[in-house]
Amino acid sequence: MLESLDLNGLYRDLVGIHLGRKADAVTRLYQHFRPLLFKKLRYQYQAIQETDLQDVIQEAFVKIYNTKSYPKDAASMSAWVFRVCENACLDLLRKAYRKHEMEWPEWPIDSEAPSAEVELQASAGLQEAGVDSDQPVSRPLTPLNRAVEFCVSSGMSLFSSQYPERALAISLAMDGLSMSAIALTLDRTEAATRQFIYESKKKLAPFIQHCLEQLR
């Protein structure tokens, strides 16, 4: 996705004086960066309406069109676009929150392993679906066994609300994105991102392990 971008050409058009080419460059940037930005913000601010978020992202790219400060070279452009857009989005969202006098949602701070309460809630999901977690589920399973899926969903939704950035990292990895694209989205180095994804999966395991055991 991002790898296919001709960054040098885009950079030339973006910093050039030809306004038509600049508009084209911003449109191409929007086309390529929007999905990742949207996904990141969607995971981060789950309470915000999808259409509002789309609107905010468009506004952020309009800001990119109007900006007079550019990245120093083509190589640093992807990170620059991400940073500028993310900051613009956050500013716009903050304004919207202030306008509606809502409490600003922060990234939840990573805590240690899930509490007993979390595990209890996840187990309750399994029981609610009529599955006894001590009893193995017979195989073969349907593509997504409904009871297990329900249990997994409960655990995952708890995990997502508790660790939105980690949930995003796992989701991006599941999408099959390149490590460089995930690293760009998470604003980390590739090595740190690889480690972060691994640790995120380890953190996720206690939330859903008891559900997935039914598959074994």
């Binding site: 996705m1 999905p35 949207f38 969903s153 995952m156 796992i170 989701s171 999408d175 859903i208 997935l212």
Partner: peptide
């Protein structure tokens, strides 16, 4: 592998539910 498949499936559903699309 099977657990990964479940996770992938979950995230795909979640993305659909949240309007997250892979391309513009």
């Amino acid at each position: 592998q099977e657990e990964e498949r479940y996770l992938k499936s979950y995230y795909q559903k979640l993305d659909q539910q949240w309007g997250v699309d892979p391309s513009t």
